[in-house]
């Protein structure tokens, strides 16, 4: 009886306790998604250069082939490095799977990309190479790189225009953004070709920051200072088109101009005889491969760390 009573009161107490304990609503907070495993962002330097249109086209091809979602982002200008950094940060926020980037600067983007990598985003480097030393130093490793041999391309293109003039001749170089490795490589390639001919004097090497209108201005200034320049290497077609615009306007038809990138407008200018040569660095292929490599990384496949695409030298003789 006594134990029964005890049991009874225990049950009673428990029941009371159950009544007293307030209803605690279940906290069924669902953890956020682990990002979009199929979204790859292609971040390019500028929307003003048709080169990048080609690159996007290649990337879109890969997008369709591989069944992923491609976000295409560009800075306003080639110099809009901060814009690119902002884009990367946006991508980190969007927790996309991979970034395929053509960095405007070889150094300035490394920290933000490292941050992206830490956030689990795969990084693929195309076009302009990120500084390997700084990358290593910052811990941004294992980033596949796809590009062309800019030095060699520039050298070949420069060779073409050198053959078209009698020596001695005066040469000038319009450089790209000097912080960009490809700009540096192209300058070096061009300079090497010029320097191999002792009859050629490099009057000046100036930068127009990859821009068409700046190139127009800078060319005008160069010719004002060095009216004898008859060889002009432009590190990209946009700058070449700007230079041609000046030369045509100034009536200097004897100046041999070399460009880079093989833009449609540049090819047209070669046909018109205004431009002598350009370098097709297969932008679409670069875009395509970049996306492909990114997907490989997402799927756990390690692509080769360096991929160089062959360049084609386009002249009057081999117009497509």
């Amino acid at each position: 009886m006594k134990t029964k009573c005890g049991l009874f009161y225990t049950i009673l107490a428990c029941l009371l306790l159950v009544v007293i304990i307030p209803q605690v609503p279940g906290a069924d907070s669902k953890s956020g998604s682990d990002g979009d495993p199929k979204t790859v962002s292609l971040i390019m330097k500028t929307l003003t250069n048709p080169f990048f249109i080609e690159m996007e086209k290649g990337a879109r091809r890969a997008e369709k082939e591989l069944g992923i979602r491609l976000l295409v982002k560009t800075g306003a200008k080639e110099t809009s490095i901060d814009q690119q950094i902002a884009i990367v940060e946006d991508m980190i926020r969007q927790r996309i799977a991979a970034i395929v980037i053509a960095p405007g600067s070889s150094t300035d983007l490394i920290p933000v990309l490292k941050k992206a990598q830490n956030a689990g985003i795969w990084i693929v480097n195309i076009d302009n190479r990120l500084d390997p030393n700084l990358s290593a130093k910052m811990g941004l490793i294992n980033v596949p790189f796809i590009s062309v041999d800019n030095t060699h391309g520039a050298y070949l293109a420069t060779k073409v225009i050198i053959q078209k003039v009698k020596q001695p001749a005066t040469a000038a170089i319009l450089e790209g953004i000097r912080a960009a490795t490809n700009a540096e490589h192209r300058k070096q390639g061009a300079a090497k070709a010029f320097q191999e001919n002792p009859g050629i004097r490099i009057a000046t090497m100036e930068t127009a920051n990859w821009k068409i209108d700046e190139a127009f201005t800078v060319t005008a200034r160069i010719f004002a200072e060095h009216p004898d320049v008859n060889l002009l290497f432009c590190a990209n077609d946009m700058m070449a088109l700007g230079a041609i615009q000046y030369l045509q306007g100034a009536g200097k038809t004897n100046v041999q101009v070399a460009g880079f990138d093989a833009l449609a407008e540049a090819v047209k200018a070669i046909r018109d005889g205004k431009l002598q040569v350009t370098v097709d660095q297969n932008a679409g292929q670069q875009g395509y491969l970049g996306v492909k490599y990114a997907v490989d990384l997402i799927h756990g496949k390690q692509p080769q760390l360096e991929t160089f695409i062959d360049v084609n030298i386009i002249t009057m003789e081999n117009l497509p």
């Binding site: 929307l47 306003a76 200008k77 068409i212 946009m238 615009q245 047209k268």
Partner: peptide
Amino acid sequence: NDYERLSTQAKIGYILSGYIN
């Protein structure tokens, strides 16, 4: 011409891209 077109394009592009983000 191409130069005008491209440079206009670039000019407007610069303007527009300032708002795109």
